[in-house]
Simulated assay, not measured.
Amino acid sequence: MVITQGIVRSFTAAGDGPADVVLSGTEESWEKTLSAVPPPYHVNVLSFSSGVVVKGEVVDTVGPFAPAILRFGQLLRELHSGPPVSEPVDSGDPWPETDNAVGRYVRVKVHGVTYRVYYEEAGHGSIPLLLQATAGTDSRQWRNVLANPELQKRFRMIAFDLPYHGKSLPPADGFPWWESEYAVSKEDLMDRVVAISDAIGLDRPIFMGCSVGGQLATDLAAHHGSKFRALVSINGWYESSALTSIRNYLFHHPRIWPEYFGAFVMAATSPVAPEVLRRETYWIYSSGGPGVYRGDNDYMSLGHDLREDGHLIDTTVSPLWVLAGEYDPTAREGVQGGARAIADNIDGAHYRVLEGLGHFMMSDDPVGFCAQITPILDEVVADLSARQTAGLAGS
């Protein structure tokens, strides 16, 4: 492939000789993956379910050069379908006039260890809305949601950084955290969220989380439902056996830099989201603490299974909304244990597929996300009001 100033000038097949990385797929899968606006699950050659297979030594070539493979797929798409539609240069900052979140720290003690936890707050509504980021990341993912003027009118929004994430450093109270790798159990995560909510002084907030946060929403509903007015699970799984093939150890390998999973994240963003915010999502994922993404993913793929405790969720106590992005694998028809399975197996759970949105919807397409989440949250509040009128426990 001859590239001049970022434009593919020519491409010649290399034949059947040896190659470090081989991309292969059926004609149908290539046609979908290289279309100008690819359909769900075919966003890029690195998408897990695109039908295009990337073969090569992960440690030697695929991992270190994942960003180049991602770019290669984008160039192939431009060669096949033309240049992408350009986005406005300011599309990464949709509400600058109300971008007024205030950051604070609070001391949180969990299992005998004290953490200095960072959180950002915006909005002047009477109902607290607690926002949980995806695996390995932090409150930066919610920055544009915090700036949304309509949500500011309705809620007191709090986006926090779990310990070891973002501005919440490892504990500084003498606990020797450096003697072991970062690892968290379901109980660790649940207890930290509850402790953070209590330390900030929130009165039964609505909890909304994405990906790992989406699974955490359902686990909190099962074990701490009375602590929350309602819970919103975004792109979470009912059970994660479909994810066990993901080799999490590669997300903290000494010969693979963080851009490896940054590239996979970029491949999971929505193809109709602004390029600048897709890149921002990539940047956030490439700047996490050592091993934190892998540790969170271990919970996501190994430590969560509602087949074991989903029966503990009482939606009359903790109303549950289950959301999946159109471009997210959890929404795929027939996928084992996806978001649809949560609604199918939990009595009273509400289910929605959000059109045009992907796995990192609040981060890569906040305008599209806020347009669809605002009426859903209005529905949540209306349901809580109706419950209160009827005297139900979930009010």
Rank of each mutant, 00 (worst) to 15 (best):
G348V: 02
P64W: 02
Y182L: 07
A343M: 05
E78V: 12
L220W: 04
S29T: 15
D296I: 00
V110D: 05
M266H: 15
S91Q: 11
I256T: 11
Q132Y: 07
H80D: 10
Y285H: 15
I342T: 15
N235S: 12
D378R: 10
D20I: 03
F175K: 13
V85F: 01
R387L: 07
Y41M: 15
L75R: 12
V53I: 15
S86F: 02
A217S: 14
W142H: 12
E379L: 01
V21I: 15
P271D: 00
Y299W: 07
Q141P: 00
R307M: 02
L131G: 11
I313L: 09
G56Y: 07
K167F: 13
A172D: 14
Q5M: 07
L231F: 02
E120I: 07
V43C: 01
L34N: 06
W283S: 13
R332V: 08
T98D: 05
G236S: 04
T316A: 07
S24F: 00
E27R: 11
S395T: 01
D298F: 06
R352E: 14
D365N: 15
V193C: 04
G394Q: 02
M157S: 08
P64I: 05
M361L: 15
P171E: 04
E187G: 00
A217E: 07
A324W: 05
G262F: 01
E259W: 09
H252L: 00
A14I: 02
A273N: 05
V43P: 00
P375V: 02
L202K: 04
A217T: 09
F264V: 07
L392M: 09
E259A: 08
V322Y: 11
K186E: 14
D309K: 13
Y182V: 14
R154Q: 13
S49H: 12
D296G: 12
A135N: 12
M361G: 05
V272T: 15
D173H: 01
R352K: 13
G337P: 07
F264E: 08
W283I: 06
D378N: 14
L216F: 01
T316R: 10
L392P: 05
T98P: 03
N297G: 09
N44R: 11
V102S: 11
R9W: 01
T4R: 15
V276E: 03
N44P: 00
T244A: 03
I206C: 03
V102C: 03
F251Y: 14
A199L: 04
D383K: 09
R352I: 00
S126N: 09
W177M: 09
V380Y: 04
K186Y: 02
F11N: 07
T33S: 10
L277N: 11
E308V: 13
P254K: 09
K32L: 00
H223M: 08
I373Q: 09
Q215T: 09
F175W: 15
F160I: 06
Y249Q: 14
S301F: 02
P329Q: 12
I346T: 10
V322T: 11
R154S: 12
A382E: 15
Y119W: 05
V184I: 06
G136Q: 10
G213C: 09
R156C: 10
V353G: 06
K167I: 03
A393W: 01
M362E: 11
F48N: 15
G394L: 01
G356Y: 06
V380S: 08
S286V: 03
W257C: 01
V37R: 12
V272C: 03
R247S: 05
I206G: 05
L306V: 02
L312F: 08
I196N: 01
P149F: 00
A263S: 12
S301H: 02
